[in-house]
Design a protein around this nucleic acid. Sequence first.
DNA 1: TAGATTGTTAATCGATTAACAATC
DNA 2: TAGATTGTTAATCGATTAACAATC
Lengths: 217, 217
Amino acid sequence: MNNKSIANISMAVIRRLPKYHRYLKELLEKEVYRISSKELSKLIGFTASQIRQDLNCFGGFGQQGYGYNVEELYNEIGKILGLDKTYKLIIIGAGNLGQAIANYTNYERSGFELIALFDINPKLQGLKIRDIPFRDIDELEQFTNENYIDIVVISTPKEVAQSVVDKLNIKNVGGIWNFAPTDLKVSDEIVVENVHLNESLFTLSYLLNERELESKK
Amino acid sequence: MNNKSIANISMAVIRRLPKYHRYLKELLEKEVYRISSKELSKLIGFTASQIRQDLNCFGGFGQQGYGYNVEELYNEIGKILGLDKTYKLIIIGAGNLGQAIANYTNYERSGFELIALFDINPKLQGLKIRDIPFRDIDELEQFTNENYIDIVVISTPKEVAQSVVDKLNIKNVGGIWNFAPTDLKVSDEIVVENVHLNESLFTLSYLLNERELESKK
DNA sequence: TAGATTGTTAATCGATTAACAATC
DNA sequence: TAGATTGTTAATCGATTAACAATC
C-alpha cells in the first residue's frame, strides 16, 4: 500500500502501465472487483510473475491469499500515470491527422484539454473545432510565451517539424507528442513521445513477409 | 553481401530497421554515399556496435576499412522490410482518423495502395477520397471473400473493432494495422500491428510527472 | 486453520556493449 | 603497406521468469 519512489522505473515497465489501466477499466465495467495476477495474466497476456513484479515497482497493491482489488488498482495506476491531473494541449499542424486528434474527444475525459490549434493554412483561420479556434502559426511564439502548455502535439509535415519546435518557449512546455516522421532535437528538459506511423507500417510490412517465409519452410 | 536466413530476428532488431531506412534515405538526399557505423551512430543514436550487430542479422553489407555504401544499404533494408513489393490496403472505419490515414498519400509512394474504405455512416456513401469510394460496412464480408487484402486498417470505435475483424475472410487477409484502443483476437496466421495512441499519450503523461519528481529531488 | 496468492529473492534468458581478429 | 572499419565472439547488463517464504 505504501508507495515507493517512482524513479528508476524501466521504460519496459512504464509502457505496460497503460495496458494494465485499460484492462482494469474493462474489468470494472464488467463489475469484476477482485482479480489475481494469474487471472489478469490470462486476460492481458503478460506472465503472472511479470504482473506482480511490475506492480511492486510502485507499491504493494495486493493482498496475500486474495489478489488485487480492481478499483483500487485501477485508481492507483491512474495516479501513477498522472491521470488524476489535467493537461493543456496545443496541436501544431491541423491537417487531416491534426484535426483527427483534435476531434478525438475521449482524451478530454481523461483530463487532456485542447486549448489551441495552429496551422499555416489561411483558409482555416476563423474556423473552429469544438469551439477551439485555428490560429496562424505566426501567433505560436507569442502564445507559448504567454501560456504554459503541458503537451505540444506536432502533426506538421516532417520538413517543418523541427523549425516549429524551435519556436516554442521551452520554459513553458512540458512535453511533445510527435507525429511527424522525424526525430526532433530538443532540450532534455522536455519529454518527447514519438508516434512514428511509418515505422509501424514498415514493421507490419516486414512481418507480413517473414510470415510468408516461415510458411514456405 | 550474402543474405542470411530472415527468421529468428528479435522484435527489438526489427523495430529498429525502419529507423535505419529513414536515416539512410536522408543521407542519400544529402548526397552522402558512404558511412561508417560510428558516423551513423552519431546520427541515429544507437551504438556503433549495435548497428553492426543489427545489420549482420541479415548479411554483411559493409566493407572493412570502408564502412557501408549508403545507397546499397538503403536498398537492402528496403528489401528486408518488403518495401520492394506492393500491398493492397482497406480502411475500416472512415471517421476522422480513418480519413486522415486515407489522405496520407506518402504511403502510396512506398507501395501501399488503398483500394477501399468501409464505414457504417450512410452520409459517406457515394462519396470518395482520392477516387476511392466509401462502401457500406455490409459489403465488407463479400469484399474480403472476393479480394485478397494485404493490410486491413482498423480505425473504428473500440466497441465494434472485434466484430468487424470477425467478418473478415482470414484466408484473404495478410495483416491488421489496428488503431482501435483494444487488443484484437485473431487467428495467429494473421499479423497484428497495434497503434495504441492512448497508451502513447498515457506514457507521455507518466513521463511528464516523473520529470517533475526528478527535478524536485 | 488450510488454502490461496502476494511480495520478493534468485535463476534464467535475451539484448546490448566491448573487444579484437579479419580484411579491405 | 598502414589505417580504418567491419564482422563476430565474449562479456556485461538488464529484463523476464521461477520459486518460495510471508501472510492474508
